[in-house]
Design a protein around this nucleic acid. Sequence first.
RNA 1: GCGAGAGUGGCGGAAUUGGCAGACGCGCCAGACUUAGGAUCUGGUCCCGCAAGGGGUGGGGGUUCGAGUCCCCCCUUUCGCACCA
Length: 826
Amino acid sequence: MTASPNYDHKAVEERRTASWQTRTDLVAVPQEGRPKYYVLEMLPYPSGKLHMGHVRNYSIGDALARYKHMRGFNVLHPMGWDAYGLPAENAAIKNNVQPRKWTLDNIAYMKRQFQRFGFTYDWTKELATCTPEYYRWNQWLFLKMLERGLAYRKNSLVNWCPRCQTVLANEQVVDGCCWRHDDTTVEQKELEQWFFRTTAYSDQLLDDMAQLTGWPERVLAMQKNWIGKSVGARIEFAIAGSEETIMVFTTRVDTIYGATSVIVSPEHPLIKKLLDGAAWGETVLQQVQKLQARRSASAAGDTEKEGVFLGRFAINPYSGEQIPIWAANFVLMEYGTGAVMAVPAHDQRDFEFATKYRLPIRIAVQNLDNSLDAKRLDAASTEYGVLVDSGVFTGLTSEEAIRQMADYATEKGFGRKEITFRLKDWGISRQRYWGTPIPVVYCKQCGIVPVPYDQLPVILPDNVQITGLGHSPLRDAPEFFHTTCPKCKAPAERETDTMDTFVDSSWYFYRYTNPAYSELPVDPKAVNYWFPIDQYIGGIEHAILHLIYSRFFAKVMRDLGLITTNEPAARLFTQGMVIKDGAKMSKSKGNLVDPDEMVEKYGADTTRMYVLFAAPPEKDLDWNDQGVEGIYRFAGRVYRFVNRYAPDAAPAGPQTHNLDLLSAYDRAVLRKLHQTIRRVSSDFEGRWHFNTDIAALMELVNLLYSAEGKISGPVLRETMESLVLLLSPFAPYLAQDLWEQLGHTDDLLHVSWPSYDPALAKEDEFEVVVQVNGRLRSKILVTEDMPQDDLINAALADPRVSQILNGKKIIKTVVVPRKLVNIVVA
RNA sequence: GCGAGAGUGGCGGAAUUGGCAGACGCGCCAGACUUAGGAUCUGGUCCCGCAAGGGGUGGGGGUUCGAGUCCCCCCUUUCGCACCA
C-alpha cells in the first residue's frame, strides 16, 4: 500500500480536455458489417450558456453513446446549433450587437462548455442553422413544397402592437399586452402569410403513430390529441327566405331532431349577408362585433357563453322545422365549418347556452330506462341511446342512426359523412430578421415568382439595423429588398418574411449524416446508412410541435425521394425538468445553478454523475447542493481506492478464478462485482435508471472499503478494472485517469464493456424468510439447491418458529425457492 | 371537462416478475484518526415501545398464504389540451 493523494478533479480533467478536443476517433463513417447506432440529443438554441437542463439531456445521451461504443457499435453522435431565433434580435436591440456576431460568439462559448464536459460528439458533423450552407436547403425544400402545393399563401392573424407598429411573436405578448409596453393591448391584424400544408398528412401522422412503438405513451397521446381526428357529418341547413345555406359539422347527427337553433361563429362570413337589408341589421351586427372583440381580449378558457339572435331562421333538413339562427362566442371559426346545430338536451355547451337564453330543450335520444325528461334536465345527456321523436329514424340506436342518417343526407344531397381534424396548417411566416429568407419574389407582372434553384441560397444580409419597430426588418435592406423578377427581369421585390425556426429543426438530423453534401439537402448514401435515429433524447416540452413538424418533414422528404424512412426516430426518450426549491430553474426565480460553476468546483464528472444520480432520467430532478457533495465524495472514494491499490494489484492479464480456493473476502467481492456488471449492463439495454446503476457502483465501492487489505491481488485488479469500465459512461475523465493508473494506455471507448460470469454472480447461500400466516417470524440460511421439503423442515425446526406454531395445525405451506417459506396455520 | 402521469422516512429516491418495505445518497447521531475537522474511515438512523411486541407505502374496500406492486371506489397533486361541435 502506498500513500494516496486526494482526488483533484481539475488535474484529472484538465489533463484530458486538450487531447480529447483533437481526437479523431469519434468521426463516424459508414461501415458495412458493423451494427450502427445513431444517438441524437436535441440540438440547443445558442442562448449564451448551457443550463442544467442541457447538461442533463446531454449527460444521458453521452452515457448511452459511450456504452454503445464500448459494445462495439458504429456510433453516430452529432451536435449542432438551432441558431436562428428571436433572442438574437432582442440582444441586438438591447446591446446593439449584430445577431450573427451574438449567435456565433454564443456558439463558440457553448462549444467550449460541451468539450469541457467531455461529451463524445463527432464535431466534424457540426452544423449551425444560420449558415447559408444549411438554410439554403430550407429554401430548397420550401420551393419543392411550393411546387407540390404543400406551401401556399393565405390570410392569417398576427399579434400587432400599435405602439411599436410591429408584429409580435407569441412570447412577446405578456398578459395580452406588448412586452415593451405593458399598457398597450396587443391587437390582431390580418396579414397574408405562408403556410405548410401539414393537414395533407393528417391521416398519416395519426396512423403512423402505430409504428412508433419506442415512443413514450404520453407523447403519442399528446400528438393524437393535437391531430384531433373526429368522425361525423356535415349537414346543410337552408335559410328561410334566402338562397344562402349554413353548413354545420356534427359528430352526433343522431340528435338532430333535438336541434333547437343553429349557431355560427361571430367571424362567420354569412352573418353580414343574413343581416343585409334587415331592419335590425345594424344593431345586431354591432352586437356580433362586440362578441368578437370581447373574445379576443379575454384569455382562452372558461368565458361566459354569449350570443345574439340574428333574426333569421334555418330549416332542419330532416324535420323541415324552422329554428332560429344565432351567433355565439363559443363557436370557433377555425374548427369544422364554423357553425353548429345546437342540441341542448345532448350537448353540455348547447345546454348552458340554451338555459341562459331560454331556448327550447328537446330530447331526441332516450337512455336505457327511458328516464330523460326535458323539463327536469340539469345537464345535457351525451350518452348514446335510442332515438325518439325523430321521424322515420325513431327507434334506431345512436350507432345505427349516425350511419343511416349520414347516408340519407348523401342521398338527398344536403350532407355527407365527414372527418375533421384539429390539426391546422403550419404558418411559417415570421415578420422577423434572424431567420431563413423565404425564397420568393413579388413581381407586378408575374405575381409570386419562386427564386430559381440555381440562385439559392437567398442570402440573409448582415448589415440590417434591428430596431424592433415597424415592418419586417428586411424591408430596410434595399439591396436585399429590391431585386429583379427571375421571369421577366422587371424590377421586383423580395419576400421580407423569414421562416419559423421550427423549419430548421424539423430535418437537421438528416443533414448531420453528411453536413458538407452540396448536391441535395441530404446525402442519400449517408442517410440510408444511419437512419432511422436509434435513440432521440430531449425535453418533454417538444412533445408536440417539434416532434410533429419533424414527422411531417419525414413524410414530405420521403415523398420527394430524399429519404426512405417513414418516421425519423425509432425510439424517443423525454427527460424530466431540472427543478430547484420547487420551481423550474430560471433567472427570474433566482434558483439557477450554473454548470460552469459546478465544473469549476466539483468537475465535469461529478456534475454529470449528479444529474444522473439524483432521479431517474424521465422524472423531474430536484437539485440539491448537498447531494452534489455526496457524489463528489463518491468520486473521491473511487479515486483514492484505485490510486492506492493500482500498484499492489496483480499485473494486468486474463484472470481465472477457482471458486473453491477463493477466500471469503475475494468471493464476496467478486460476487458483488459480477452482480454489478449484470445490473448496470441490463439497465443500459432497457430501463435507463442510471440512478440505481450509480447506487450499485457505490455499493461495490463500499464493499471494497470494508474489505480493504483483505482482497487478493488478482481479485483486486479484476474488480478495479471492471469498476473503472462501468464508471466510464458516467464519469469519463475519472475513469480514463484510473484506467491509465492501472497501467493501460488505450482510450476507454475502445475497450470492451465488461461481461459478467453467472457462476461468480451467483449467491451460494440464501437468507430465506420464514413467515407464519404471512408475518415475518424468522430467517434461515440455506443453500440454493435445498429441496422444498428440507426447506420446510428447516423452517419448522427453527426454535422461534416452532415456539409460535406450538402444535397448531398446519393448513398449508408456501415455498418460494431462495426467498421464503410461509406456514399457514389455523 | 378530456387525456397522460405521480402520491413510499426529515429530504432525493430504491424495491425489474405479487414474496424481508425504505437499496444508494443527503441530513442527523455516535465513534476512530487528529493540534484541529466543514478532510477521511467505521457504526447507527421508518414510527410507537425499556423490552417482548405492535404499526406502517394518500384514504376506503377487494383478490391472495402473502399487496407499495393486481382489481374497484375516493382524495390530493403534476403535466398536456381545452367551449374541437
